[in-house]
Structures are given as structure tokens and as C-alpha cells.
Amino acid sequence: MKVKMFSYNQLDTYIHHLSGLTKFVCFLLLTTTVMLSFDIRVILFVLILSFALFKVAKIKFSQVKLMLIYVFIFLITNFILTFVFAPLQGVEIYGTEHVLFTIAGPYVVTLEQLFYQITKLLKYLSIVPLGIMFFLTTNPSEFASSLNKIKVNYKACTALSLTLRYFPDVQRDYHSISLAQQARGTELSNKEKLSKRFKNIISILTPLIFTTLDRIELITNAMELRGYGKSKTRTWYAYRPLNKNDYIAMGVCLAIFIASLLITTFVNHSIYFNPFI
């Protein structure tokens, strides 16, 4: 069976055995660590850790290939736009200017600008594996039950669980409708003009929307028939209590977060690491 993007798959790995709450807390701690720092050393550490955890979770490149391509395109576009609209931002941040070469007019390539943009590029890149890993290794029902155990309203938890479950369903429906349309002669490849391909994609999205609405109605009716929402609490069949490994994982991520704050406050005295001074 072909593995779909954003689809949870139960594997026998350390990451999969952690509680959904643990993975959510670790995700927040590590992403916050990266977002609050422009220290390339901290960012590289989280990036290496992210890809190491990718390997531990046995996530295959084929599962995330399309998503990584989109992310790469976004990062390269962001890299170019930053240089076009703020070619000297790195100089302003680090307070020095080491010119490598001049392109034209104000567009001067400096060592500071390259360092700043590479740091920002790695900053975004380090967060992506964490988010993908959370989606692919977390059971939606178990995650919802874990949140409910820390007093999050169970209705909100159920809505979140249904949302996470719905990603692979939408993807499967889109693939099925796309194959059906192509069997009828609808061309979606590069052989067709862009305007025509866009029109053909719209012909796929229309039945996809109606399929989605039908599924929503079906789920709503099923929940109403079971009396969902009438009680103040509910039970969960997929709840997983926290164990030693959960506390170790959260402790390590918390230590990384605190270490990052200490480096920012007492070593760099700024969110930026300045190697030019």
C-alpha cells in the first residue's frame, strides 16, 4: 500500500511510542527555540537533531518529497526577495560591511548579508522536519485524548482529531477524482496549456468539495445519533499515559530551549550571533 503524505502510520519506533502530548510539547519547545534565535549554531543543532529524529522515526523521503519541494521553492523565493528588497539588511544587523562584489547600483553582495540570509534559510528549514514528523507519527485520536487529559475542552479536541484525520482522506479523494477525470480525457500534464490545466484542476476541485460536504454531513449525523456533546466529559479509547520516555523527551527539549535563552541573554546579548566582531 502506498503511503500518503500527512497520513499517520503506526511503526515500532521510539518517536511513535511517545504520547501525542509529548510530541506536541517538544514541537512547541523546539520551534520556539528556533524562532527566538538567529544564532546559526543553535539553529544548526536543531536542524541536525530534526533530521536525526527523522531517521529514528523511519520516515521515508518518498512520503515527504512533494512537501519538501514546495518548501524548497518557498525558501529560495524568500532568499531572492530578501536580497532584492533589503540587500544591506545584514550590514545593518551586524554593524560591519565586507563587500564581496557589486552587481549594480545598491545591489552589493556582502559577507554579512549572505550570513544573515543563510541563517534565515536554515531557520525555516529546521522547523519543517519537526512539523512533518509530528503529523506522520502522531495518532490523531491519541493526541486529542492527551490534550483532553490536561483540561482542554473535549469538543475542541475532537475537532482537532477530525481535522488531522481528514488530510489523508482529502488527498485520497483528490487522487481518485483526478484519475477518474483523466480516464475521461482530462489532461493535467505539462503537455496542456497552463490556462487549460487550471480549468481542468477546477473540474477536479468541484466534485472534491461536494465529496467533502457529504462526508461532513455523514460525520455530523453519526455524532448526533450517538448523543455527542450532551455530556460535560467523555471517555477515550486511545488514551496513552505519560511514561519515563515521555518525561525524558520533554526534559531534553526543555533543556535545549533554556540553553538557547541563556546563550541569547548571556553570551550573544542579542538574538543574533555576530561572527564579525
Rank of each mutant, 00 (worst) to 15 (best):
F135C: 08
V170Q: 01
I177Y: 01
R165F: 09
N243Y: 11
K244L: 06
F276I: 08
L88V: 11
L213G: 10
F27R: 11
F115Y: 15
Y154P: 00
Y228P: 12
F54E: 09
G105D: 08
F115P: 03
I15H: 03
D12V: 02
C253Q: 02
I15C: 10
L29T: 09
L100E: 11
Y70M: 12
V108Q: 08
I150R: 02
V152L: 15
G90K: 02
S126A: 14
T211N: 14
I73W: 10
T233K: 15
L44W: 12
A144I: 05
L208E: 01
E187G: 08
S126G: 11
Y14Q: 13
N153Q: 12
G185L: 02
I209W: 00
N190G: 11
R215E: 07
A249D: 02
G251L: 02
T265S: 12
E112N: 07
F135W: 15
T138V: 00
D214T: 11
L49I: 12
I201F: 00
L136K: 00
Y237Q: 15
H98W: 12
K120N: 15
P106I: 03
T265I: 09
T212A: 11
L18R: 02
K191S: 13
L194W: 06
I80F: 13
L44T: 07
S161G: 02
I132Q: 05
L125E: 12
M1E: 13
D214F: 14
F101D: 11
S126W: 01
T186H: 09
P87C: 07
I103F: 15
V46W: 01
N243T: 06
I256W: 04
A86S: 15
L29M: 07
Y174E: 04
N190C: 10
F266D: 09
T137D: 00
I177R: 00
E112T: 12
K196T: 07
V170G: 01
L44F: 13
I248Y: 04
I48A: 14
L179A: 14
A183E: 11
L121Q: 07
I201T: 00
M133C: 07
V152F: 09
V109G: 09
M250E: 02
F266E: 06
V99R: 13
K191W: 14
T220P: 15
I204H: 00
L44Q: 12
H175E: 13
Y124D: 05
